[in-house]
Design a protein around this nucleic acid. Sequence first.
DNA 1: GTTGAGCGTT
Length: 286
Amino acid sequence: MSHFGRTGPPDIKDTYSLLVLNISFRTNADDLFPLFDRYGKVVDVFIPRDRRTGESRGFAFVRYKYADEAQMAVERLDGKFPPWREVDGRNIMVQFAKYGPNAERIHKGKIMEAIPSRRGRSRSRSPRPRQVVSEQLNTLYDYLADIETAIEIENIEGEAAVEAEIGMREIGIVTVRERIAAEVEAEAEAEVLVEVLTIIGAVAEIAVGAGVLLMTVLHQLGVVLILQGVHHPVALLPQALRKGAMAESHPLQKVSLLQVAVQILEAHLLTAQMRIDGCLGVEELV
DNA sequence: GTTGAGCGTT
């Protein structure tokens, strides 16, 4: 049941509008809503149509309640990762709307005004190195950022619904489509997400600091450690350095960033499942 | 039934 597009703009005050370009002529508001709703509260989806024929004009407007979530949607859906930007076989383009009602102050793709943040839904970000250590590392962080977004945690009436979903079929290398939904204690699930990302970030920086191959460390150590149980990053430091050095003396496996990303995801899914099954306790996280 | 740069519903 579509509640968009028929009744006009519902609550346009203090909302943030995105222009979605390059949608197919058959794409409707209900097709767009689930995709954009992943990144925040969508208050309206409007597809301009020809007055006479009713045909779509091939673009849409999506309104978010919160600016930071709109910004996130732009970064993810206008990005270079096919699984999250393809709708009806077309790669959509997403940007802040520049004209029309409540046009936001845009500057280089970002809104330049006070940004109301949504409380209680802030996500940990993968830590970025202060300086650009390597192109490889930055690419990895980009992947991590998207994986993070693909894993949604919703707080509903004191409990958390955890949903992890990812699709990489479009990339043509792997097929991963998993979904986990469960009701557990909200605190515990939030910890899982934060912890996994922290570990990955820490391991990546260790690798650079130790002068060993990042891919080797991540592949042979980082993911495995996560799979074995969630440890505190600090506890990993000496071990990471030792195993990183070890890995250097072994034949290096060819591991693509994508493979690493997939493994991280799988590790996350497993960890989440372990959490749900009660294998891991919250105290193990800290 | 097709098309493809762009900015909006009463």
